[in-house]
């Protein structure tokens, strides 16, 4: 009975409340209650919806993340490849510059410059000899002078001492067995430039009253018929004091960078009446 009465009471109460709301829709109290109800219940439905939305977006985000990871790996690979390409490009560019400079050398009457790539050095001593990829098959002969290009000018490297077919050995001017007749360009005084098995050369047999000075350029004298005249050997680095003996000496700094030789030019002698390509 009580239960039934409660139901009737609740029906009466709720109906009354609802009818009040319906009758006074524009009333501030009713509209305020409506807004309050809305804001109270909004999060209850909104939060699960957002959770569901995020859960739904999770697989998409994961897929996107995996795609990004794959793209990142591809880009990294491309970046590494590009770095290698850049280095290769730089090497090619510098090589191209060197070769272009070689092409611009003035022609000689009795020799033809043939370019050769340095591919090995003396394993015992870098200042003694090098191996170049050019030999008898290409017309190279023992004794042919070898030069390089330094700042647009020919500089002496050494001479061919051994022919190995497609390869030949070049004795560097810094080797102690090397001796080149030379001349101080400024004064015209002559002497012999000998190797020291080091990064320095020594010009011997200068007269005691020689006017050799620091910075003087020393070139080949062309005597002996091995090296053509006028090829730069180096510059005077330290002349010996005057009147110490019959001859003066002068330490030279070689013009050629022996530690950075990539290509050289072998001055192949041109036989009389024969024109080399």
């Amino acid at each position: 009975m009580i239960k039934k009465n409660i139901s009737v009471f609740l029906l009466f109460f709720y109906s009354l409340v609802c009818l009040f709301f319906l009758s006074w829709q524009a009333n501030q109290l009713v509209s305020g209650l409506r807004r309050t109800f809305f804001y109270l219940l909004k999060p209850v439905g909104e939060v699960p919806s957002k959770v569901l939305w995020h859960a739904g977006a999770f697989s998409g985000n994961l897929h996107q993340l995996m795609n990004l990871d794959s793209q990142y790996r591809n880009l990294q690979e491309r970046w590494v490849r590009q770095r290698l390409d850049e280095k290769a490009l730089y090497a090619l560019r510098t090589e191209n510059e060197r070769l272009r400079a070689l092409l611009s050398l003035p022609p000689r009457a009795d020799t033809v410059g043939v370019m050769a790539v340095v591919w090995a050095r003396d394993p015992q001593d870098w200042y003694r000899s090098i191996l170049v990829r050019l030999g008898k098959k290409q017309g190279v002969a023992v004794g042919d002078p070898v030069v390089a290009l330094q700042d647009g000018r020919e500089v002496l490297v050494g001479r061919v001492v051994e022919d190995l077919g497609h390869t030949c050995k070049v004795l560097l001017i810094s080797d102690s067995l090397s001796a080149v007749s030379a001349r101080i360009q400024r004064t015209g005084e002559e002497g012999i430039v000998e190797g020291q098995n080091s990064s320095e050369l020594m010009m011997n047999y200068l007269f005691a009253d020689s006017d050799v000075r620091v910075g003087d350029d020393v070139v080949t004298a062309g005597l002996g018929g091995v090296f053509p005249e006028g090829i730069l050997i180096g510059s005077v680095h330290q002349p010996s004091p005057e009147s110490i003996s019959v001859y003066r000496r002068a330490a030279l700094k070689p013009a050629v960078r022996l530690h950075a030789l990539h290509e050289v030019i072998i001055l192949v002698r041109q036989p009389r009446g024969r024109i080399l390509p």
Binding site: L11, Y14, S15, C18, L19, Q25, S31, R34, F37, K42
Partner: peptide
């Protein structure tokens, strides 16, 4: 009342009918 507040129906309509329906 929640449905009325969240929807477009007049505030109190569904509240009235759902409580009446329960009875």
């Amino acid at each position: 009342l929640g449905s009325d507040a969240a929807g477009l129906s007049l505030f109190g309509t569904q509240g009235f009918f759902l409580s009446l329906l329960g009875y």
